[in-house]
Design a protein around this nucleic acid. Sequence first.
DNA 1: AATTATATGATACACTTGTTTTAAGAACAA
DNA 2: TTGTTCTTAAAACAAGTGTATCATATAATT
Lengths: 209, 209
Amino acid sequence: MAGISNTRLRILNFIRKFLDERDYTPTVRDIARGCNISTPSVVQHHLNTLERQGYIHRDPKVFRSIQLVERKREAISRVPLLGTIAAGKPIPVPTSDTWTSIPEETLQLTDEVTRGKKGIYALRVKGFSMIDALVGDGDIVLVQQTSTVEDGEVAAVWLKIEQEVTLKKVYHEAGRIRLQPANTQMEPMYYQPEDVEIQGKVIGVLRKL
Amino acid sequence: MAGISNTRLRILNFIRKFLDERDYTPTVRDIARGCNISTPSVVQHHLNTLERQGYIHRDPKVFRSIQLVERKREAISRVPLLGTIAAGKPIPVPTSDTWTSIPEETLQLTDEVTRGKKGIYALRVKGFSMIDALVGDGDIVLVQQTSTVEDGEVAAVWLKIEQEVTLKKVYHEAGRIRLQPANTQMEPMYYQPEDVEIQGKVIGVLRKL
DNA sequence: AATTATATGATACACTTGTTTTAAGAACAA
DNA sequence: TTGTTCTTAAAACAAGTGTATCATATAATT
């Protein structure tokens, strides 16, 4: 926030508030009124500066066309909730037609949460089998579809021997795979590469209380 | 989508597209041009109908004030990240001027996550002291400012004796307060009412991996 | 067929609003 | 001081824009 004066900050905040409340842009006169500025021309002058500094964008001659540059990036992603995840069953890996069919529910999340990643889906956790990943019953895990992960990333791993799915940090070690619980007090588990199957990468957890 | 004619659907879609592209509302004349309608009055007529049917809302006399009702529900809340939460220190309870000052960071969350609640702020968890609430280092807790909670709700509780903050389910029992960890395998703690202070209600947890 | 409701059209009024112009006070460095 | 830059100020123009009015056409209903 370099080179932004007090009045201009007030104006920016007023525009933000106005947009939040009414979903359309204030006029220069609205801003003047809201910021205790006596005349449109002063607002005009500050808006010119703010536009030059890259904080806002306006379409010339178009009424109520102020756009906050910071909000341009606030895209909303719609993430399908594709089912549940529990210890004893593989997670429902989406197929091409899963994406187009109607999901049980759709989460609307900002890129703040999904970080713009593609191929994200959500699963609701059932039961307490993932406590050691700090994931409880009812939590929602956000999964990115992939069959490989980097060392240290949390993955939904299918354990072929136990016939169980689990959420663990994955490390590739010489001749074996180390699965490390998020709860650092717990011991890691070791598997032969052929005994585990990466079903997806966990990119987030959401708990609504 | 009952009782919506072809032209009105075209108008609705045009408004949606216009909003997506330019972030401000079209005028009746924009709509006329975009939908091959020869005159503002026809658009006006359809907008009246759409408003009566509840698809849109307009502020009378205000230019470019059409609001899509469907998008009201996917409102984005901006939640300020006001600091960190750790075992040994009280959480930074926001004061009136905290809200207007510039937060360290602002999370953009859909109402999907905040459920439209007001007075929400976010705290980043530091350390592993809240493992028993299934909250780990780096997690973000969403807190609603309040000093009272209902039985069973998860609260940020300041323990006066230990001089510690903790996240627990709160139950008011006869003459004492029961603090129950989210991890059901762990034992509850009991306190005298005067020894605990509710600092806020935890409405969600967000973990980005 | 007659009536009513709905959709389309053209035009015009009055208000809203972006923008320009001109001026002057305030802050600050040379 | 002087000059320069930034900010505030008032007023007015020209264009954008919501809306009303009147007229006609088309569809639905009785």
